[in-house]
Write a protein that binds this DNA or RNA. Structure first.
Length: 408
RNA sequence: GCGGGCAUCGCCAAGCGGUUAAGGCCUCGGAUUGUGGUUCCGAUAUACGUGGGUUCGAAUCCCACUGUCCGCCCCA
């Protein structure tokens, strides 16, 4: 038998689990403070949820989904969780609650891609979604939450990039003008860009093809695009966001080329990047998706959110060593040792002993590796009803009774 | 889907056509029959990814496959 974890998946081992627990606990702490509530949705959903929600022009839906048929029903392992959260939001009539509805989630996502640094087929995201607030304060709240969360994990030197894609109304205008600006050199662009031109011209800005990038520069696309005006409402929204961010002391850079790969974004989009991640450098990505709830059959509902890649965050924070237990009971009398361990655990204190009843020196050696203190329980101690407690870090030891021990 | 690198014990790793295939770490035992973390000794009874080929001879060269890592695309 030689079965290995499938390509692009990883076991999270005991030696690294503390980092994960720390990240998840930090998320819970930071988000709870802002009254975001955790939600857990299924790992698979009806395929059509993603086809509609994520968008059938996206790579995610076109070539990266794990889809299977069961009882004539097409199901898909979730490639992201916004669609699932929106589905739950609708299914449980959250839109009848007084806005905002603020939710966060954590869990595995699945995308069939070639694994590389910072990318797996099963990976984990932590994300937030905020429903019901039109005002840019919601966008700012989400970005702030992301920054606070990363800061709490000790990540300060990340860059926040923002942009506005406009609403449906001005996006049409925006697209037309973008297309007009690109038209003169369209046939010089790469094949992908030519395909995107009709289907989803915004994505052209995201192209990393060297030749295309050069052309953008040559034709001053950057200036032309940043010159395109959003409709008054979107423009005001965007300005308001910037005002909020500045007031909240959140540093950001504007990136007019920033376009997200999912179809549902409107107005605000943003990314948080790190220079220490290799080529997959986005730690967090998100934005506003005012049309999605309605698209999935609910009432028109403004919404903002983001998702972070937990593996990517994890690779940026220092590894926490696995902890030591408090006591290791060293004794030739296994029965008494076991009883003492049991009593300590009942007091809520971590303790262990040698299941093999090995020689004294071996037991002590083991103790020094996994525990803070060794409790020596020999014939003398048992007879006279005390414990010799040895602090393993400096070899100091003293006689104690049970009350003393549990206070340590 | 397309490129490139790498594959030697549980982990790290030497070896570059002829070796009993180094060494270190970890684990276990002993020196030390109630005091560890240092030191010394020993053990882990078939480790060269798989399958072909070249050669008198292959871990070492060639081919294919598989795995893995990195990059493109895309994304977190």
């Amino acid at each position: 038998m030689n079965i290995k974890a499938p390509k692009g998946t990883k076991d999270i081992l005991p030696s690294e689990i503390r980092n994960w627990q720390h990240i998840e606990k930090t998320a819970n702490d930071i988000f709870s403070r802002a009254d975001f509530k955790e939600i857990r949705t299924p790992i698979f959903e009806d395929t059509c949820l993603f086809e509609r929600g994520v968008g059938d022009t996206t790579d995610i839906v076109n070539k990266e989904m794990y889809t299977f048929i069961k009882s004539d029903r097409s199901l898909t392992l979730r490639p992201e969780n916004t669609a699932g959260v929106v589905r739950a939001y609708l299914e449980h009539n959250f839109y009848r609650e007084s806005p905002p509805v603020k939710l966060w989630y954590k869990g595995p996502m699945f995308r069939y891609e070639r694994p590389q640094a910072g990318r797996q087929r099963q990976f984990h995201q932590i994300g937030v979604e905020m429903f019901g607030i039109q005002d840019a304060s919601a966008d700012a709240e989400c970005i702030m939450l992301a920054v606070e969360f990363l800061k709490a994990l000790g990540l300060n030197d990340l860059t926040v990039e923002i942009n506005s894609l406009g609403c449906n109304i001005c996006r049409r205008e925006y697209k037309d003008r973008l297309k007009k600006a690109i038209a003169p050199f369209l046939n010089e662009l790469c094949e992908d860009c030519q395909n995107r031109y009709e289907k989803n011209p915004l994505r052209i800005l995201d192209c990393k093809n060297e030749n295309c990038t050069k052309l953008f520069e040559k034709y001053n696309l950057k200036e032309t695009v940043s010159g395109i005006e959003l409709c008054p409402e979107c423009s005001e929204h965007y300005n308001k966001l910037k005002t909020y961010l500045t007031a909240l002391n959140i540093k950001y850079t504007e990136n007019t080329f920033l376009v997200r790969g999912l179809d549902y974004y409107t107005k605000t989009v943003f990314e948080i990047k790190s220079n220490n991640l290799g080529s997959q450098n986005a730690v967090c990505g998100g934005g506003r998706y005012d049309g999605l709830v309605e698209l999935l059959g609910g009432p028109a509902t403004p919404a903002v959110g983001w998702a972070m890649g937990v593996e990517r965050i994890n690779s940026l924070i220092p590894q926490v060593n696995s902890y030591k237990i408090k006591f290791f009971v060293v004794s030739d009398n296994q029965l008494e040792a076991f009883k003492l361990v049991s009593k300590l655990r009942q007091q809520g204190i971590s303790a262990d002993f040698d299941y093999n009843a090995r020689k004294f020196a071996k037991q002590l050696e083991k103790a020094s590796k996994i525990a803070e203190y060794a409790i020596i329980l020999g014939e003398e101690e048992i007879k006279n009803n005390y414990f010799t407690v040895k602090k393993l870090s400096d070899s100091s030891q003293e006689k104690m009774d049970f009350e003393d021990i549990i206070k340590l």
